[in-house]
């Protein structure tokens, strides 16, 4: 046993070493740097909690944090519901399951930067607005019935051009990669024993009751896993806003990761950026712990 442990440790040594050097050391160092004024080129100068107290008064930090929270609050439930819906849909069809899965998964294969540029065209060139225009025409026609002198016609929003719609546009764009999560849901869905559904059918359960009382409890560990992953993902959103809006218009899509990046690598305020990273870490940690707490009695593990 001892020998095996020794050998195991030996084999794991390169990994342990890499972890310590490239993850653990930077992690610990960033705690220290968050208490310093550090521009990379000069020796870090200890400033106590100055960075944190400056953060508390930094309007832009609060703005970025609020934007990030709003993005997370919109994108996490929306993507969870949509991916689950797609997975249940694909699972319920008798033929072509593989084809549908592939179609839903394809967007995941496109690099984030390319997707961002394509979506800039979709929003900017009026492609999406053109698709939605007929819907607005019908709405305006209906409004005219009540108000024949109607002047203020409804139109599709200006998407990324509008400070109100830019953030929801990014959420909308984020939805096109739900194929990945849907894929994981599908794998778990196919794992739910068919006899449970049969038994429910014999008992006269409706399709909705089957989803609510069998499907959801059976796949709850995966829902939980996906939720945690989307919390982390949503709080680290960077590529799409960085490329598509640069944080604009008027900072409507300026998220915390970009503010950290700007401080660390544009204005070289490494200490301040480290302090901000730790705040972001704490936010994610609190939300993850909350998710664990809430899910304790709601996630069903068949093995237990």
């Amino acid at each position: 046993m001892t020998l095996n442990r020794g050998k195991g440790l030996l084999f794991a040594l390169p990994w342990i070493f890499g972890l310590c050097l490239f993850t653990l050391y930077p992690l610990v160092a960033s705690v220290y740097y968050s208490f310093t004024h550090f521009s990379v080129l000069q020796e870090p100068k200890f400033v106590g909690v100055a960075n944190y107290s400056e953060l508390a008064q930094d309007e832009l930090f609060w703005r970025a944090l609020r934007n990030t929270m709003v993005y997370a609050a919109l994108s996490i439930p929306l993507s969870a519901m949509l991916s689950l819906f797609l997975a249940i849909l694909v699972n319920s069809v008798k033929c072509g399951q593989v084809l549908y899965s592939v179609i839903f998964y394809i967007p995941q294969l496109i690099p984030g930067v390319v997707a961002a540029i394509v979506w800039m065209f979709i929003f900017g060139n009026g492609l999406l607005s053109d698709v939605l225009q007929p819907l607005f025409d019908v709405l305006n026609w209906a409004r005219r019935i009540f108000d024949p002198d109607l002047k203020d016609l409804w139109r599709p929003p200006a998407w990324l051009g509008s400070a109100t719609w830019a953030l929801p546009s990014l959420v909308l764009m984020g939805l096109w990669t739900v194929g990945q999560t849907a894929f994981i849901y599908l794998a778990k869905l196919q794992d739910v024993p068919a006899e449970m559904y049969e038994a429910a059918e014999i008992d006269g359960a409706s399709p909705w009751q089957k989803v609510w009382h069998i499907t959801l409890p059976m796949i709850s560990p995966i829902i939980f896993f996906n939720t945690i992953m989307s919390i982390i993902g949503a709080f680290q959103v960077f590529t799409e806003p960085y490329i598509m809006t640069g944080g604009g218009p008027s900072r409507a899509t300026y998220f915390l990761p970009q503010y950290i990046w700007d401080n660390a690598f544009v204005t070289m305020r490494m200490g301040y950026a480290c302090a901000m990273s730790w705040i972001l870490f704490l936010v994610i940690l609190i939300l993850t712990v909350l998710a664990f707490r809430i899910s304790r009695d709601r996630v069903y593990y068949a093995g237990r």
Partner: peptide, 14 residues
Amino acid sequence: KREAEDLIAFKQGF
């Protein structure tokens, strides 16, 4: 405001 937004969107389509 709406025309101003449209102009930003017009620019983003370049």
